[in-house]
Nucleic acid binder design. Sequence first.
DNA 1: GCCGTTTTCGGCCCGACTGTTTTCAGTCG
Length: 573
Amino acid sequence: MPVHNTEIAALFNRLADLLELEDANPFRVRAYRNGARTISSLAQNVAELVKAGKDLSELPGIGEALAKKIETIVETGKLPQLEKVGARTPPALSKLMKIEGLGPRRVKTLYKQLGIRSLEDLDRAARSGKIRKLEGFGKKTEEIILHGLERFSGAEERMKLPDAEDIAKSLVAWLKYTQGVKAVTVAGSFRRRKETVGDLDILITARKNSPVMDRFVNYDEVNEVVSRGKTRSTVILRSGLHVDLRVVPQVSYGAALCYFTGSKAHNIAVRKLGVKKGYKINEYGVFRNEKRVAGKTEKDVYKQIGLPYIAAELRENRGEIDAAKKGKLPELVTLEDIRGDLHCHTKATDGRNSLNEMVEIAKARGYEYLAITDHSRHVTVAHGLDRKRLLDEIRQIDKLNEKLDGIVVLKSIELDILEDGSLDLPDGVLKELDLTVCAVHYKFNLPRKKQTERIIRAMDNPYFNILAHPTGRLINQREAYEVDLETIMTAARKRGCFLEVNAQPDRLDLTDSYCKLAKEMGLKVAISTDAHSTGNLDYIRFGIGQARRGWLEADDVLNTRTLDDLKKLLRRD
DNA sequence: GCCGTTTTCGGCCCGACTGTTTTCAGTCG
């Protein structure tokens, strides 16, 4: 099993932590963190790139030194420098820096002065009042540490996007109806449509004397006010979600929106570019010699430094600035581009609504087609369809199609890929379908090679069309199964098969990085909801967000096609 | 440690809030 990208990134991050504790050059520390970020957001397995002899220093933020270190990690599983630094500075200290309110300086002082090297040490010292006596610390800081410890022990989990949406919606409504408030925008990773959010960043433009800050900290759901200033405040809601609110004047709205949308790495890159052109960029605008030259809209900000507008979903410093400079930004796929859904369930298996109800809502959404993909027999808990019941459903759909106008129901199935790579129903019945959506639903723990072969063998079946939720991961619940997705993607491309971007907000599988890789490989994907109810069809929004984060354009997406064009792309002999 | 249509050396984004301070360091985003 090759070394995972996340393991390499973790080693670099840990090294960065320890170097920071040693007062190393902060830019060197940042270089390690940047490298870690590049590695962890890469779809391809770095170990395999190394084996293929690829020059890693071509990757952004990876230079000769880091490239060499990565090679060592791939070969030995270890980063010698980390062990060397670890001998001087206890590696456990990096955990202390995760406590809110504790950074490298304070952790270092705590270690040097009180010998604190673990969470337990920290807790003991704080409780016995030792910390407040240190220079630069005080009673209040001690309380903050104790509080941070308490919070830390709770599950540290990022919130899934739809949950954050629910919370944001009520809060935004509350803030909007405040005297003097003009615009309320949720920015941050929420706006970048990341699959999970760590906190909510809300931007407000308001008249000078608007009481919006008061109203914010007095919101019913606020559990704790972390900080409160004139232009910025932070609270923690009862749900545990942190919310930052920033108030700026109208003339700074665009600059503030850029700043608050991030990502941090994107902002740094943009500001750097600004500096090069003689501008200072902050949340109040773009400045040349103290004079504001742009800032009212995001577009103005980008324009001022010679760039076209960059969509929020792209702002991760993963090549978007370079693409913008060259005029090569993708024209991202939108909700309006989607002409149909290629994965949904009905009451026949584990869906909540009938065939007719599903079709009715799909039609109301303006879809031209809807593929009904109930489970196959192997998924017994969902009462999966056997050959006979599938034939019944096919006949039912044929009958319905005769009556329907403006939408066509596609005959399909979510077909289990069995352990040996065969499909769960015989070809004889599969050939009656318009398309198949195939998936792994059991035996997640096969070795990587076997799992990969299993899926590719399934693709050898001429009736295989789309690989559903290709890695099986459930966000915050279940890791992806071990599989060589890049090899699978290559195989899919060769065979005329497709991969799915499952739009269930629990799945969002493919990830953004793999969407981008698919695009680069020329492999088209289907964005499908896997809806188990009529309401779920709306999940398509989350799939679109993920696809946009993966740089996908309408042309890269199967279900932006008209029905005729779609049929041409699906191999059905 | 990275990086270069000003640079292969000398830079490296920018500001708010808090606490412990009498002008600023530390942390955060």
